[in-house]
Amino acid sequence: MSKTDYLLEIKNLEKSFEGGTKVLKDFSFSVQTGEVVVILGPSGCGKSTLLRCINGLEPIQAGTILLDGQSITDGKTKWSQIRQKIGMVFQSYDLFPHMTVFENILLGPLKVQGRTREEAGIAGEKLLERVGLLEKKDAYPRQLSGGQKQRVAIVRALMMEPEIMLFDEVTAALDPEMVREVLDVILELARGGMTMLIVTHEMQFARAIADRILFLDEGQIVESAAPEDFFGHPETERAQRFLNIFQFEK
């Protein structure tokens, strides 16, 4: 096992869907510990698929993914083991509707990690408190607003004490006034030094939170730059066109 500076390394990843559509082509990039990388790009560029490949929800055709310098794609380690180190939050929150908020966030720690109810319970209450939802502990998901559900989903992923968090358009399904409360939680995680890969369409947020912007198009990295460079003077014509979509002039 070779120790590297990178927490996550992706080497020559190839991904295509059934029927042969290539989604990711010879894709390589690395994330350092504590780094926040925001992935931008037009829809269908492969950004969500990339996140899904990283925690094994999509099979890949070629290439390697390393976490902590160890390959997670060689089939030697079970995905259920690896996924404990990788927290993922989805666009559609996907809380388990038949469980209360507290049961939702304790399921992983108790059943997957075999932690005790007391210890995980204390951790759970702390995290709920941090996202301002402690009083919703015994509520069912359908009694929560979209923003609250998404915050619970983030807590549920954090409960596993992951080394890296993947956010897949977590605010895309939310009403505008609820976007802020979710983004604030993610910003706070960034301040706490969490390593994160974020797919989003919130440009202001991307600019504020990112250490690095990765701009994807047609399954390839078109640009990789610091946020002020990317938003200030994008190098490629493709990125300029993309950013223009978010500009309004009368």
Binding site: R83, D94, K111, R156
Partner: peptide, 20 residues
């Protein structure tokens, strides 16, 4: 998505069926 999000927590196939 229920399958995806429970898998993402590290639940095994059997656990996903049993609990979710």
């Amino acid at each position: 998505h229920q399958y995806d999000s429970s898998a993402a927590l590290g639940l095994t196939g059997i656990q996903i069926y049993r609990y979710i």
